[in-house]
C-alpha cells in the first residue's frame, strides 16, 4: 500500500498523546499520594498529551477528500472501525482536557481519578480501533493479525512514556523509575516489532494471477492496466519502493525508534546528575518518534493488497509456503 503521510502522522502522534495521558493518569493514581509531581508537571504533561493528540487529528484531516464533513465519521460506529476510531478520539481528547481542568479547579481527587480512568479506557479504545481498522481488512495478511493491535498499543505507550520522561527532565525531575519504565517499554516494543517482522516472513497467500482471472494458464502477462497507464488502482495499492530501500529504512527505523533511545537512557543511568538530562531525554524521545514514523510507513508499505493480483504487483511469497519449507528441511509434508 502507498504510505499515506497524514495517516502515519495521525497514528504516531495521536499514539504519543495517548501514551502520555495513560502515563500521567496512572502515575497520578499510583504516586499521587507521595506528591510525585508539582502542578507544572501535571500541566505540561497534560498539555503535551493534548497537543500531540490534536496534531494527529489535524494531520488526519489532510487525508480526507472532504475534511469539512469529517464529523460525519462518527455516524456508523456500530459497524465501522474508522467510525469507532473517530468516536474514541473525541472521547479521549474530551477526557484528557477535562482531567486537566479538574486538576486546576482542584476538584476532589476521586472525581479526577474517575475521569483519568475514563481517559485511559478511551486511549486504549482508540489504540484498538485504530489498529482494528487495518486488521479488519482480512486479505491483507500483514495487517490482519493480533500483533497489529498489540504493536499499536506497545509503540504508543513506549513513545508516550519516552516523551513524558523528556518533559519531566526538561522541568528538572530526572526520575529514575520513569526512565526504567520507558526503557522496559522500548525493549518490549523492539521484541514485538521483531515478532511482527518474523510473522510477516511467514505470510503466505496461496493466490496468484491465475486465481484472480480464474484461468489455469502457466504464463499470464499483464499487457495493459486499462485506459490509462497509471491510475488510482496502480498508485494507491503499491508503494513504489524497492526491497533494498525497504530493508534499509527498516534498519534505520528500528535503530532510531528503539536502539538509540535505549543507548541514550543507558548513558543517563551511568551519569545520573547530568546537567544535560533534558536535552538527552528529548533527543531520545524525538529519535523514537522519528523511528516510529518510519516504522508506521513500513507498516503501510508491507501491506500487500489483493487487488494487486490484477496489476501484477502482488508479492506472492510462494517461498514461504509452510508446507514446502517444512519439506525442504527434511520433515515430510503431511499427506492426506
Amino acid at each position: 500500500m502507498r504510505p499515506e503521510r497524514s495517516l502515519i502522522l495521525l497514528l504516531v502522534l495521536a499514539g504519543v498523546g495517548q501514551g502520555i495521558f495513560v502515563f500521567l493518569a496512572v502515575a497520578d493514581i499510583a504516586w499521587g499520594s507521595y506528591g510525585w509531581a508539582r502542578p507544572e508537571v501535571i500541566y505540561w504533561l497534560g498539555v503535551s498529551s493534548l497537543a500531540f493528540a490534536f496534531a494527529g487529528m489535524a494531520a488526519s484531516l489532510f487525508h480526507l477528500g472532504n475534511p469539512m464533513r469529517g464529523w460525519k465519521a462518527i455516524i456508523r460506529w456500530q459497524s465501522s472501525w474508522l467510525s469507532r476510531e473517530a468516536v474514541s478520539m473525541g472521547l479521549f481528547s474530551g477526557a484528557a482536557a477535562l482531567y486537566l481542568l479538574l486538576y486546576f479547579f482542584s476538584a476532589p481527587s476521586g472525581l479526577r481519578t474517575l475521569v483519568g480512568l475514563a481517559g485511559i479506557f478511551a486511549a486504549f479504545a482508540l489504540y484498538i480501533s485504530s489498529a482494528m481498522l487495518y486488521a479488519r481488512i482480512s486479505f491483507v495478511r500483514e495487517w490482519s493479525n493480533k500483533l497489529t493491535a498489540i504493536n499499536f498499543m506497545a509503540f504508543g505507550l513506549a513513545s508516550g512514556v519516552a516523551v513524558s520522561y523528556a518533559v519531566l527532565c526538561l522541568l528538572g525531575f530526572n526520575y529514575t523509575a520513569v526512565r526504567e519504565i520507558a526503557a522496559v517499554l522500548a525493549a518490549v516494543g523492539l521484541i514485538l516489532k521483531a515478532a511482527s517482522l518474523a510473522f510477516n516472513k511467514t505470510v503466505y497467500v496461496p493466490l496468484d494471477i491465475k486465481n484472480a482471472l480464474v484461468m489455469n494458464e502457466p504464463n499470464i502477462k499483464l499487457m495493459s492496466t486499462g485506459t490509462s497507464y497509471e491510475h488510482y488502482n496502480t498508485k494507491e495499492y503499491s508503494s513504489g519502493f524497492t526491497d533494498a530501500q525497504v530493508r534499509s529504512v527498516l534498519i534505520l527505523s528500528l535503530f532510531a525508534a528503539f536502539v538509540l533511545p535505549l543507548i541514550i537512557w543507558a548513558v543517563m543511568t551511568q551519569w545520573p546528575d547530568t546537567p544535560a538530562a533534558g536535552i538527552l531525554a528529548s533527543l531520545a524521545a524525538l529519535s523514537m518518534i522519528a523511528g516510529l514514523i518510519a516504522e508506521r510507513g513500513l507498516f503501510f508499505i508491507q501491506g500487500n493488497h489483493l487487488q494487486n493480483l490484477y496489476y501484477a504487483t502482488f508479492r506472492s511469497n510462494s517461498a514461504s509456503n509452510p508446507l514446502l519449507s517444512k519439506a525442504k528441511k527434511g520433515t515430510p509434508a503431511p499427506v492426506k
Binding site: G65, A73, S80, R136, H231, Y237, L306, N308, Y310
Partner: peptide, 23 residues
Amino acid sequence: CIGCKYCSWACPYGCREFDGHEG
C-alpha cells in the same frame, strides 16, 4: 462521503476509484 478511501482498501477487487477533485 468524506473521502477517507477506507472502502477502496476494503474492496478486494480494486473497483472503487477516488475522485481527487471532488474528494
